[in-house]
Design a binder for these strands. Structure first.
Lengths: 344, 344
DNA sequence: GCCCCGTATGTAATCGTTTACATATTTTTC
DNA sequence: GAAAAATATGTAAACGATTACATACGGGGC
């Protein structure tokens, strides 16, 4: 492997001069510049970024810790991150980490010295253990709010989004509205449930806990929850699922049971994954700008990196938007923008 | 930031001893071990992986170069990579790179010293320019076959898959079968087209180039191609789209035009993205084990890293599988396995 | 002609580790 | 009980870059 020394020797100068030419720092005569460039090219010299970051203590790399790598959600969030990171000249070091305390801590440790900061997504409520991180390195927490410490965080407007969706159902005349809850101990799930309850309270509808079914964000959970609802004596007329996967599961259960959607039962989801549009009927959902979520997280992190001592802890949320489709009685906008072309 | 020196000073030993304890190399007395561990813990010492890799010349990181980060395909391939990488103790440094020669070369340069090897996906046929990479670093090429150099490559069994799908259509009695081609100058696209033609030849059907429509893997392209086909005097009875997105686009065009699928027109795709199952009717497709593709790429790369001099260049392909659904007259298997639970 | 300054280059310290080698101490072996 | 072997620890040289400081030279100002 050719190093800066090889170039220096070949060009009959010192390494310092080579470094100066390649980084455009310090004055070098034109003739020397030319010679060094020529040699570097001929030898196919490529600087060793690892060595460079050791001395400059900048890696120009951001760590990304995700609990999972399934599905559209993650590819979108990664895309958003990569876009902005790349624009600022940063790379992304991505790792899946168990959402528990130990997993995240280990992962962050493993990243010491290879990244300038970390975006960690840990929707798990227990992850507050992040409190006592070796907080020497800037961190932005995604989809959960750390309690009382100095870590920046970025979340989805879960509560507001859920509240609006349920309000929409109410405005369509529904009074008995069920919710299929998200995973236990999950921040997003908890907030969406809170929004659901607030909307009911807003409308003066009494809470009926038999309408709050457990779920875990999977299609299967949505399916079985819907079946359970159908067996009830006093059926609800609408189902709000805490995410689209469960809404889709519920929809198949309803279809299989011959229940008409939305006439006999309205269905709504959360996230607005591309699939939602394609279901039959298309599912109303709360749109989450996932890509933007990733982008904003990186921006926050970069800010944290450049202003390391500026300790104004930040708490931001990205806002959601209602998307009403046929599953709740809406008319499909014929011109609904198609999803980004997934070349390949 | 606390370094190994701080630990050494505090524990009243030399850095060498600290290193030995932390890496379990060399003999150290139990008492010293205990003391060093205690100090390291108290000081929250975290080794600087960058410095470590400088001396060991191992980064335990793999670079991943993707042309794009949209859609299910990429999240799946990344997941497959991360799974195996993580199992072997490696991280993933992911970067989007323009598929052209310059882009890939720049990206690989930027990764020098931060990764032990690179998986580069460059479906673009022109990317053969990879030939004269600073090939000092192991590379596995995904979804394209480099000409005549020593880079390992991993591709999809495009040709065979397409051939089988078209054979299936023929077995259903179709004789006039159109293809919506993939992006120009794209390896997968070219191979799928080749498979289509081979299948026709196998059945003794004469090739009709008016049935070979241009496309670019986007839904929109599928849509307009289908419209074009409908306008033809002598309509085909089946459409084979080079990927599912285009099949979906075609399907909407047919629906909108009131053409019955599969009775008036059969539709088939390629990739078997999750959406395919959910369409109405569900679309027959050629299943590509994307996750496995990523996993295998990493395995190849790791092999290349450990056996750097073992220059047996490898060319592998992952095999595809026909999935016949209603869009080509199949019966939907009621028990078709649901997609992996996309927990949010 | 001396001093000062700007330009071009080199020398060597540094970043945080690992590790070959040296040294000191203890244990084993005969 | 001395030599050999094993154990425990330290010293210092790497790894491949950047950069503060030193040096050398040529030219102006007076």
């Amino acid at each position: 492997m050719v190093t800066i020394k090889d170039v220096a020797r070949e060009a009959k100068v010192s390494v310092a001069t080579v470094s100066r030419v390649l980084n455009g720092s310090g004055p070098v005569s034109d003739e020397t510049k030319r010679r060094i460039r020529e040699v570097a090219g001929r030898l196919r010299y490529v600087p060793h970024s690892g060595a460079r970051s050791l001395i400059t203590s900048k890696t120009e790399t951001l760590g990304v810790l995700l609990p999972d790598l399934y599905g559209e959600f993650f590819s979108e969030v990664i895309r958003g991150m990569d876009d902005t990171a790349q624009r600022k000249g940063f790379h992304l070091l991505i790792s899946r980490a168990y959402a528990d305390r130990h997993g995240i801590e280990t992962a962050i440790r493993a990243m010491r010295g290879r990244v300038d900061g970390v975006v960690a997504m840990s929707p798990d409520l227990d992850a507050d253990a992040l409190l006592n991180l070796p907080s020497t390195i800037p961190v932005v927490l995604l989809c959960s709010v750390p309690q009382g410490n100095e870590i920046d965080s970025l979340t989805i407007q879960n509560c507001r989004g859920a509240r609006e969706m349920v309000a929409h159902l109410i405005s369509r005349g529904h009074r008995r509205i069920a919710i299929i809850k998200g995973a236990a101990r999950n921040y997003d799930a908890a907030e969406r449930l809170r929004g659901y309850r607030l909307a009911l309270r807003d409308a003066g509808i009494e809470r009926d806990t038999s309408l709050e079914l457990d779920g875990d964000f999977t299609e299967a959970a949505g399916y079985s929850a819907a079946l359970k609802l159908l067996e009830m004596g006093d059926r609800p007329t609408a189902i709000f699922a805490a995410n689209d996967s469960m809404a889709i599961g519920a929809l198949s259960a309803l279809k299989k049971s011959g229940v008409a959607v939305p006439d006999e039962m309205a269905v709504a989801g959360f996230d607005d994954i591309p699939l939602a549009r394609y279901m039959d009927p298309p599912i109303s959902s709360v749109h989450v700008p996932i890509c933007e979520l990733g982008a904003r997280a990186v921006e926050l992190l970069l800010h944290g990196i450049t202003h390391k001592n500026d300790h104004a802890r930040r708490r931001e949320r990205v806002s959601t938007k209602l998307v009403i489709r046929r599953s709740t009685g809406g008319e499909d906008a014929a011109a609904e923008r198609p999803p980004p072309s997934t070349a390949h």
